[in-house]
Design a binder for these strands. Structure first.
Length: 881
DNA sequence: TGGCCTACG
DNA sequence: CGTA
DNA sequence: GCCA
């Protein structure tokens, strides 16, 4: 792949280029004259002209290259670049404010500053020069952030290495042809196109309009369409695109595996004809009013019907959903006037309590008296109760129950953020409101959206609902918030009250760990060493590497010298400060505390080696060894852990196939392992979860749920689907019954194909004899198919599905536990243990008395962490492993 | 020199 | 010991 | 392997 970057903002360009080089190993190619070459001495290749650069990359097309030099190329060279089949043109942009600031900072270095007018001139000229090129970009990335880490996470989720962009798959190919056909439409109402295929060959195409020989609809040929009113369907003279494609093909040319591609969902009339002509599959990419009826008809007639436009729609709708500097509507909505004195009194005690953040966690190491006593918990509880329903300060509009009774949906977007929200929302027929209780969609500044389903008629929860509503022009109330990230609308607590993360803590649960570290290669090397230690059965050695790895991962900047990592960065809450540290940390800084979990001997030496030579010799050696790769392929099989994988690979087993041949495992096991190794797109995770919740809703009145695991940590691809379900007010017996029924229901449709574990809700507790632990998990394998958006093609894919049914009081704790990552969870428990509490996925105990703490008044994960005196780290910053 | 997360099957 |  |  050969990526060319174009854009005006040098910082965004630089971050993108660095990301490709450092995270994905792209080689930098540049065009420049000889005099400029000296300045860098790394792997960069220089060329005298764009043409020679393109030739160079063409000869080495299997490698990955990136160049920022294309926006100064001639149009001939530019076209040459685009003509190659392995090239991708990526345009990156940022906000005007960012751009100005970045220019100012350069200006300052050179001793002059810009006026607004000078900036405008600069922008106009540079943008004008690039405009034509930008318009041809395959991907436009908009960077709203001032912070490199956030931008890198965004880049990561765009998945620039996706081969699909270089060469469309069949669906995309035919769909684009259908779109092209729609351009020939002559109907006043809507441009629709269709392509009929058989065995990947086009049989016919069609677009909508009046029949041959009649005046075109666009010339007034159809009175109904020209009337402007959505009525008189029966008087319409226009043929639909689908009809035209069918008529053009004729009954005899339609085989028994024909696929019809339509750029709009077929209407009921067309659907009838589609069924009658024997078409087996319909693929469409724009929702239409009659989707439900059409879907029903197709289902009855066993015609498969797929909606493919998920990502495109999200990409178009996304700009209006995110990242505005909108203030949280505290003033008019959240802050109700104190209605009575008791409320005010309560608030004052409350806030003084909650402002009381704990000391630096490391200082507490010396202070064994510091515990989270149960009396504190009870105190918390009492206050909540006394202030019930009308606390002021923060979060009183959304009290327990209002949203809790409905489906909670967590969607993490990290795509192109917005330029203008309100205007675009209006264009799509969406209403922007500040009334939470009447809204269906809550938008957070940090690119996260939640559907609360307060008024959606069929009570289904999925992103398609937003997009379909937009396409059907129905009104969709939106509520805007400026919170940081949260999955839970209940969590409208004041972020200012949160305990702040501390990047110097030895506990992973106190630090932030982005999806992709600026030091990803070092992290990877440490991962290899960790895996090697596990394989060698050196458990504690492996743990040390895991800890060191997460420490490096939480390090906010690119490590360039040993001073960077061996002297910790002074903790700073100030974003600006943290960002500017990136440029200043080269200079000697005041030594603060040494970085934890990186000892004086071994791991420090590895890191220094990496700094000096750009690699860790031992890691390279392990990576290159046969044992290593064989071990990994064996390890990937269910039931084969580190021990067995090590033993087998040592006893001379070379591959998984060999195990099958020896009869040690069945072919089915091997296939399953292969399937489970494939990662799952966010789209598919959501569709599967939505399907499961469809079943859940037929068994429970108002289930609440959250998708956790890697998905919640904003990973672009997941390994499995983790769904936590509860129902407000449900008894343990009801929930127990529910899980059994849900399992049956999923099995009866053939979706759930294998059950690996089902735990009853009432497990005899080993801590208290006569009472029970309340938790229930169903671990299984489901068969995902194209309708769920599998990316592996036509064949069904097995996916791991974990359904966890939580008792309402443990809901947030279960979510916290099932979100991970492993290191985060480990240190979470480690930390509370040191404070005389014991924590598992469903409950918190007093470690000495074994008494369970009552969490029934905990309103959110955020709240829970505050109760535990821990900082709330946004899920996308919990990627510690 | 002892501890390193916790639970289930 | 394997898995979440 | 690292920490207390």
């Amino acid at each position: 792949m050969f990526i060319a970057l174009i854009g005006v903002d040098h910082k965004t360009l630089e971050w993108t280029q660095k990301y490709l080089q450092e995270v994905h190993g792209f080689i930098l190619l540049q065009v420049c004259c000889d005099s400029q070459k000296e300045k860098t001495a790394n792997d960069t290749k220089y060329f005298n002209s764009t043409a020679t650069m393109i030739d160079y990359a063409t000869e080495r097309w299997q490698n990955n290259f990136v160049t920022p030099s294309l926006d100064s190329s001639s149009s001939v060279d530019f076209d040459l670049f685009l003509r190659r089949p392995f090239t991708l043109l990526v345009a990156v942009e940022t906000t005007l404010a960012n751009m100005m600031q970045n220019m100012q900072s350069i200006g300052h270095k050179n001793g002059h500053s810009f006026t607004i007018n000078q900036f405008a001139d600069f922008y106009d000229t540079t943008y004008k020069a690039r405009r034509d090129k930008i318009s041809q970009a395959h991907i436009n990335i908009f960077n709203p952030y001032t912070n490199e880490q956030d931008y890198i996470s965004l880049l990561h989720s765009v998945n620039l290495l996706d081969e699909q962009r270089l060469r469309p798959n069949w669906d995309t190919y035919f769909m684009e042809l259908a779109d092209l056909a729609s351009q020939r439409s002559n109907c006043m109402k809507r441009r629709v196109g269709a392509v009929l295929t058989q065995d990947k060959r086009i049989v016919s195409t069609g677009y909508n309009g009046t029949p041959k020989g009649l005046t075109n609809c666009t010339q007034g040929g159809c009175p109904r369409c020209n009337n402007g009113v959505e009525q008189g369907f029966a008087e319409c003279l226009c043929l639909h695109a689908e009809e035209n494609a069918l008529l053009e093909a004729g009954r005899t040319r339609i085989g028994d595996s024909a696929v019809l591609y339509c750029n709009t969902c077929p209407c009921l009339g067309c659907a009838i004809k589609i069924v009658q002509t024997g078409i087996k599959e319909v693929v469409y990419n724009q929702a239409y009013r009659v989707d439900d009826k059409t879907a029903q008809l197709f289902e009855n007639a066993t015609v498969s019907c797929f909606f493919t436009n998920f990502f495109t729609l999200i990409f178009t709708i996304y700009p209006l959903l995110t990242h505005l500097n909108l203030k949280r509507p505290t003033n008019n909505l959240m802050k109700q006037p104190p209605s009575d004195k008791s409320t005010t009194d309560d608030d004052s005690t409350q806030s003084s309590d909650e402002h009381d953040n704990p000391d630096d966690p490391d200082n507490k190491d010396d202070d064994s008296e510091a515990t989270l006593s149960e009396s504190e918990m009870v105190g918390e509880k009492r206050k909540r109760r006394s202030g019930s329903g009308s606390r002021s300060g923060s979060g009183r509009i959304v009290e327990e129950g209002i949203i809790y009774n409905h489906d909670i949906r967590f969607i993490s977007f990290s795509f192109n953020p917005s330029i203008e929200l309100v205007g675009a929302a209006t264009k799509l027929g969406l209403t922007v409101t500040s009334d939470l209780t009447s809204s269906d969609l809550i938008i957070y500044e940090s690119c996260q959206v939640e559907l609360t389903q307060l008024s959606h008629p069929d009570n289904s929860v999925c992103q398609h609902w937003i997009t379909d509503s937009a396409a059907a022009n129905t009104t969709l109330p939106i509520c805007l918030y400026n919170l940081n990230t949260s999955y839970d609308p209940n969590a409208f607590e004041d972020p200012a009250l949160d305990i702040q993360p501390d990047s110097t803590s030895k506990y992973a649960c106190w630090r932030t760990h982005p999806l992709v570290s600026p030091n990803e290669e070092l992290v990877d090397a440490l991962r290899v060493l960790k895996q090697d230690r596990i394989a060698r059965d050196e458990k504690w050695n492996a743990l040390a590497y895991t800890r060191a790895l997460s420490m490096v991962k939480s390090f906010p900047h690119r490590i360039r010298s040993k001073d960077d990592i061996l002297l910790s960065v002074p903790a700073s809450d100030d974003e600006e400060d943290a960002a500017s540290a990136a440029s200043t940390y080269k200079h000697p800084r005041t030594p603060t505390k040494p970085v934890k979990n990186i000892g004086d001997k071994k791991i420090k030496a590895k890191i220094e080696e990496w700094l000096n030579y750009g690699r860790v010799y031992e890691a390279e050696k392990i990576r290159g060894s046969d044992m290593h790769s064989i071990y990994h392929s064996l390890y990937s099989i269910q039931g084969i852990g580190p021990k067995k994988a090590f033993e087998l690979s040592r006893s001379g087993v070379r591959s998984v196939d060999e195990l099958v041949d020896n009869g040690k495992i069945t072919q089915d096991d091997a296939t399953l392992a292969q399937h489970l190794n494939n990662s799952i797109s966010r789209d598919e995770v959501e569709r599967i979860a939505n399907y499961v919740m469809g079943h859940a809703r037929s068994l429970l009145a108002h289930p609440s749920y959250a998708i956790c695991g890697g998905f919640r940590r904003a990973k672009p691809m997941s390994n499995d689907i983790d769904i936590i379900i509860t129902q407000h007010g449900a008894s343990v017996a009801q929930l127990n019954h529910f899980l059994v029924a849900l399992t049956d229901s999923l099995q009866s449709t053939g979706f759930l194909t294998k059950l690996m574990r089902q735990v009853s809700l009432c497990v005899a507790s080993n801590r208290r004899k006569e009472d029970h632990d309340y938790q229930s998990t169903m671990l299984g394998v489901v068969e995902s198919s194209r309708k769920f958006g599998t990316s592996e093609g036509e064949h069904p894919q097995y996916r791991r599905l974990d359904v966890i049914v939580a008792k309402p009081a443990s809901f947030h704790l279960e979510i916290l536990s099932w979100t991970g990552s492993v290191m985060y969870e480990r240190d979470l428990r480690s930390y509370v243990r040191r404070h005389k509490l014991k924590l598992n996925a469903s409950s918190v105990y007093n470690d000495t008395t074994d008494e369970e703490l009552d969490l029934s008044l905990v309103r959110s994960e955020r709240h829970l962490l505050r109760v535990l005196r821990l900082p709330w780290i946004a899920p996308q910053y919990r990627n510690c492993d």
